[in-house]
Structures are given as structure tokens and as C-alpha cells.
Computed example of a mutant assay.
Amino acid sequence: MPLIILALFIGLPLIELYFLIQVGGEIGALPTIALSILTAIIGTWLVRLQGFGLLLRVRDMMDRGEVPALEVMDGALILAAGLFLLLPGFMTDALGFLLLVPPLRRWVVARFVRVAPASRYPGQGPDRGPRVIEGDYRRED
């Protein structure tokens, strides 16, 4: 495992640098830099928009007394997308934009949690409404 992490820390920046040089050779250095800054700005705006939407969903779930566990994982993926989009490079930008696609995030969360991909998202799956437990009781004094 440490060798894989080391390979990622060394290999990923080298691959990013290679792609930046190739794109810079085709369109020029300044347009490449401008494109990298533009993707960071657009990515930051999208992360902010989706983050506020997630915050409203979490708040709604907390008001209903539900635990927003899957939404917290969704938020972690949105945070990772934001970090990838802020890093210079086209591969990290592509990965960041992919993580901003809600169905793909649901699939990633489902792979880690082992639940149906849409079971805990609003309006989908068996948990559409509040849970009701019916029963009888009697009071003994």
C-alpha cells in the first residue's frame, strides 16, 4: 500500500505536467494557464452550488430526526471534487468534474457502503416517508 501511494504522489504530477506541456504546445502557454484558471473558477462555483444543496438536504434530514450518514459521504466526495478542481492539471479537473455528477457520486457511495445506489436519496427507494411503528400499550400504576 505505501508503494501505491508513493507511485501516485510521484506519477500523477508527472502525468499532469506532461498533459499541461502537450496542451501548452498546441494552444500556447497563456491560453493553457487561462484554461486551468477557468476550470478552477467553474469548478469552485459548481462545488459551492452542490454543497449548499447538500447542506439543505442534511438540515432537512436532521429536522426530521434522521441521520444523514450517506449525505456526509456525499459531502466528502463534493469536497474531494473541489480539491481536484483547484489542483492545476487536466486529469484532476476531469476527475473533479466527474465527482460533481450526482448519479456517479451515488454509485461511489453505494460501492463503499453496500446499499442500493438510490435507497437513501430524497424521493427514491423504500424510505420515501417517515417511519411509523404501530403498537398497543397499556398503563400500569
Rank of each mutant, 00 (worst) to 15 (best):
I33E: 00
A34C: 04
S36Y: 02
S36T: 14
S36D: 13
S36P: 00
S36C: 13
I37F: 15
T39A: 05
T39C: 06
A40F: 08
I41D: 03
I41C: 06
I41Q: 12
I42A: 14
T44Y: 07
T44I: 08
T44L: 08
T44S: 11
W45A: 12
W45T: 11
W45E: 02
L46K: 06
L46N: 06
R48W: 15
R48V: 07
R48K: 07
L49N: 08
Q50N: 08
Q50D: 10
Q50G: 07
Q50P: 02
Q50W: 07
F52D: 08
G53K: 04
G53E: 07
L54D: 07
L55D: 06
L56K: 12
R57M: 12
R59F: 04
D60C: 03
D60H: 15
D60W: 09
M61K: 11
M61S: 13
M62H: 02
M62E: 09
D63Y: 07
D63Q: 14
D63L: 10
D63A: 12
R64C: 00
R64Y: 07
R64S: 13
E66K: 13
V67Q: 05
V67N: 14
A69E: 03
A69N: 05
L70C: 00
L70M: 05
V72W: 15
V72S: 07
V72E: 04
V72M: 12
M73L: 15
M73N: 02
M73C: 09
D74C: 09
D74L: 05
D74R: 06
L77I: 10
L77S: 08
L77P: 00
L77F: 15
I78R: 00
A80L: 14
A80F: 12
L83S: 05
F84D: 03
F84T: 02
F84I: 01
F84L: 15
F84G: 02
L85W: 07
L85E: 01
L86R: 05
L86G: 01
L86Q: 10
L87I: 04
L87K: 07
P88M: 07
P88G: 08
P88L: 08
G89V: 06
F90A: 04
F90W: 14
M91L: 15
T92A: 12
D93K: 14
D93R: 02
L95Y: 03
G96H: 07
L98D: 01
L99Y: 01
L99A: 05
L99Q: 03
L99W: 05
L100I: 09
V101C: 08
V101S: 04
P102V: 09
